[in-house]
Deep mutational scan, measured.
Amino acid sequence: MTEYKLVVVGAGGVGKSALTIQLIQNHFVDEYDPTIEDSYRKQVVIDGETCLLDILDTAGQEEYSAMRDQYMRTGEGFLCVFAINNTKSFEDIHHYREQIKRVKDSEDVPMVLVGNKCDLPSRTVDTKQAQDLARSYGIPFIETSAKTRQGVDDAFYTLVREIRKHKEKMSKDGKKKKKKSKTKCVIM
Rank of each mutant, 00 (worst) to 15 (best):
I142G: 02
T183I: 01
Y137Q: 10
L159K: 02
V160C: 03
V186T: 15
A134W: 08
V152L: 14
C185E: 15
A155Q: 00
K178C: 13
I139R: 00
K169E: 14
D173R: 03
K167V: 04
A155F: 01
L133D: 05
T127V: 13
K177S: 07
F156K: 06
T158Q: 13
M188S: 15
S136D: 04
S136K: 14
S181F: 02
A146L: 10
D126G: 10
D132I: 05
A155W: 02
K172T: 08
D126M: 08
K178Y: 03
A134R: 03
L133E: 09
K128H: 12
K147E: 15
Q131A: 14
D126V: 08
T127R: 09
I187L: 09
K167W: 03
V125C: 12
V186F: 02
Q129P: 11
K165Y: 01
A146Y: 12
R135D: 10
R149G: 15
D153E: 14
S136G: 10
L159V: 08
V125M: 02
E162D: 04
K178S: 14
D126L: 06
K128D: 10
K128L: 12
K175R: 07
K167P: 02
A130S: 09
S181L: 03
K178A: 12
V186G: 14
D153L: 14
Y157L: 12
K128G: 13
I139Y: 03
A130P: 04
V125D: 14
G138F: 00
K178H: 05
L133W: 11
K169S: 05
T144I: 06
T158N: 10
K167L: 04
D126F: 10
K177H: 02
Y157N: 13
K165G: 05
D153R: 13
T158M: 03
A130R: 02
Y157D: 15
F156A: 06
K175T: 07
K167F: 04
V160L: 06
K178P: 09
A134Y: 04
T127Q: 11
M170S: 05
S136M: 07
T183V: 04
D153N: 11
R135E: 12
M170A: 02
F156S: 03
R164T: 00
D154V: 07
K172L: 12
S181K: 02
D132C: 06
S136E: 08
T144H: 00
T127M: 12
T183A: 14
M170R: 01
E162Q: 10
R161L: 01
G174A: 11
V160Y: 09
S145M: 03
M188D: 15
D153T: 13
T144S: 06
V152D: 08
G138S: 02
T144P: 00
G138A: 06
K175V: 03
Y137S: 06
S136W: 04
D153C: 14
H166G: 10
F156T: 03
Q131E: 11
D173K: 03
K167D: 12
R161A: 06
V125Y: 13
S136H: 06
H166C: 07
K167E: 11
M170C: 13
K176R: 11
K165C: 06
